[in-house]
Protein backbone atom coordinates (compact mmCIF):
# COMPACT_ATOMS: atom_id res chain seq x y z
CA UNK A 1 0.00 0.00 0.00
CA UNK A 2 1.49 3.38 -0.97
CA UNK A 3 1.55 6.41 1.30
CA UNK A 4 -1.40 8.16 -0.36
CA UNK A 5 -3.59 5.10 0.23
CA UNK A 6 -2.44 4.98 3.85
CA UNK A 7 -3.49 8.59 4.32
CA UNK A 8 -6.86 7.84 2.71
CA UNK A 9 -7.42 4.89 5.07
CA UNK A 10 -6.45 7.00 8.08
CA UNK A 11 -8.97 9.64 7.09
CA UNK A 12 -11.68 7.04 6.51
CA UNK A 13 -11.23 5.65 10.00
CA UNK A 14 -11.19 9.07 11.66
CA UNK A 15 -14.09 10.79 9.94
CA UNK A 16 -17.74 10.30 10.94
CA UNK A 17 -19.98 7.90 9.00
CA UNK A 18 -21.66 9.47 5.95
CA UNK A 19 -25.36 9.91 6.77
CA UNK A 20 -28.29 10.31 4.41
CA UNK A 21 -28.15 13.72 2.72
CA UNK A 22 -31.12 13.28 0.40
CA UNK A 23 -33.13 16.04 2.06
CA UNK A 24 -30.51 18.76 1.78
CA UNK A 25 -29.55 17.73 -1.74
CA UNK A 26 -33.21 17.92 -2.85
CA UNK A 27 -33.36 21.39 -1.26
CA UNK A 28 -30.22 22.52 -3.10
CA UNK A 29 -31.47 21.22 -6.46
CA UNK A 30 -34.83 22.94 -5.92
CA UNK A 31 -33.10 26.19 -5.01
CA UNK A 32 -30.95 25.92 -8.13
CA UNK A 33 -34.11 25.96 -10.25
CA UNK A 34 -35.63 28.76 -8.14
CA UNK A 35 -32.47 30.88 -8.58
CA UNK A 36 -32.29 30.40 -12.35
CA UNK A 37 -36.04 31.03 -12.70
CA UNK A 38 -35.80 34.17 -10.58
CA UNK A 39 -32.95 35.56 -12.69
CA UNK A 40 -34.78 34.71 -15.92
CA UNK A 41 -38.15 36.15 -14.85
CA UNK A 42 -36.81 39.34 -13.28
CA UNK A 43 -34.24 40.10 -15.95
CA UNK A 44 -36.34 38.91 -18.90
CA UNK A 45 -35.18 39.50 -22.45
CA UNK A 46 -32.92 42.44 -21.60
CA UNK A 47 -29.54 41.98 -23.27
CA UNK A 48 -27.91 45.38 -22.70
CA UNK A 49 -25.11 46.44 -20.38
CA UNK A 50 -26.96 48.17 -17.52
CA UNK A 51 -28.36 45.36 -15.35
CA UNK A 52 -31.43 45.67 -13.15
CA UNK A 53 -30.11 45.93 -9.57
CA UNK A 54 -33.31 44.46 -8.09
CA UNK A 55 -33.02 41.41 -10.32
CA UNK A 56 -29.41 40.87 -9.25
CA UNK A 57 -30.30 41.44 -5.58
CA UNK A 58 -33.15 38.92 -5.45
CA UNK A 59 -31.13 36.31 -7.35
CA UNK A 60 -28.14 36.82 -5.03
CA UNK A 61 -30.43 36.68 -2.01
CA UNK A 62 -31.72 33.22 -2.95
CA UNK A 63 -28.15 32.00 -3.41
CA UNK A 64 -27.09 33.34 0.02
CA UNK A 65 -30.12 31.71 1.66
CA UNK A 66 -29.20 28.39 0.02
CA UNK A 67 -25.57 28.54 1.16
CA UNK A 68 -26.43 29.56 4.73
CA UNK A 69 -29.21 26.95 5.12
CA UNK A 70 -26.85 24.27 3.82
CA UNK A 71 -24.14 25.34 6.26
CA UNK A 72 -26.57 25.14 9.18
CA UNK A 73 -27.78 21.71 8.00
CA UNK A 74 -24.29 20.20 7.71
CA UNK A 75 -23.17 21.68 11.02
CA UNK A 76 -26.10 20.09 12.84
CA UNK A 77 -26.01 16.81 10.89
CA UNK A 78 -22.33 16.12 11.59
CA UNK A 79 -22.08 17.88 14.99
CA UNK A 80 -19.79 20.71 13.86
CA UNK A 81 -17.36 18.27 12.20
CA UNK A 82 -14.32 19.89 10.63
CA UNK A 83 -11.71 17.82 8.78
CA UNK A 84 -8.22 18.08 10.21
CA UNK A 85 -5.14 16.26 9.02
CA UNK A 86 -4.20 14.03 11.98
CA UNK A 87 -0.53 14.07 11.00
CA UNK A 88 -0.10 17.82 10.96
Amino acid sequence: MDKIEQVEKLRETNEPQVKSEKGIKAFIISMTFVTILTAALTSGTYNGYDPNAYSVAITGFFVIVTVVMTAVWYRSKYSNYSYEDKKS
Binding site: K3, I4, E12, E15, V18, E21, Y78, Y83, D85, S88
Partner: peptide, 27 residues
Protein backbone atom coordinates in the same frame (compact mmCIF):
# COMPACT_ATOMS: atom_id res chain seq x y z
CA UNK B 1 6.60 14.46 -4.65
CA UNK B 2 4.37 11.94 -2.90
CA UNK B 3 4.58 14.07 0.24
CA UNK B 4 3.50 17.09 -1.85
CA UNK B 5 0.47 15.11 -3.11
CA UNK B 6 -0.55 14.18 0.44
CA UNK B 7 0.03 17.68 1.76
CA UNK B 8 -2.04 19.21 -1.06
CA UNK B 9 -4.95 16.79 -0.52
CA UNK B 10 -4.94 17.55 3.23
CA UNK B 11 -4.80 21.28 2.60
CA UNK B 12 -7.72 21.15 0.15
CA UNK B 13 -9.89 19.11 2.51
CA UNK B 14 -9.00 20.95 5.71
CA UNK B 15 -12.07 22.36 7.41
CA UNK B 16 -14.56 20.37 5.33
CA UNK B 17 -17.78 20.02 7.31
CA UNK B 18 -18.79 16.74 5.70
CA UNK B 19 -17.12 13.32 5.69
CA UNK B 20 -15.69 12.33 2.32
CA UNK B 21 -16.82 8.70 2.33
CA UNK B 22 -15.12 5.71 0.73
CA UNK B 23 -14.38 4.64 -2.83
CA UNK B 24 -16.41 7.40 -4.43
CA UNK B 25 -15.96 10.27 -6.88
CA UNK B 26 -15.01 12.91 -4.26
CA UNK B 27 -12.23 10.64 -2.99
Amino acid sequence: EEAEYIDTASMLLEGSSMPLGKNNLPE
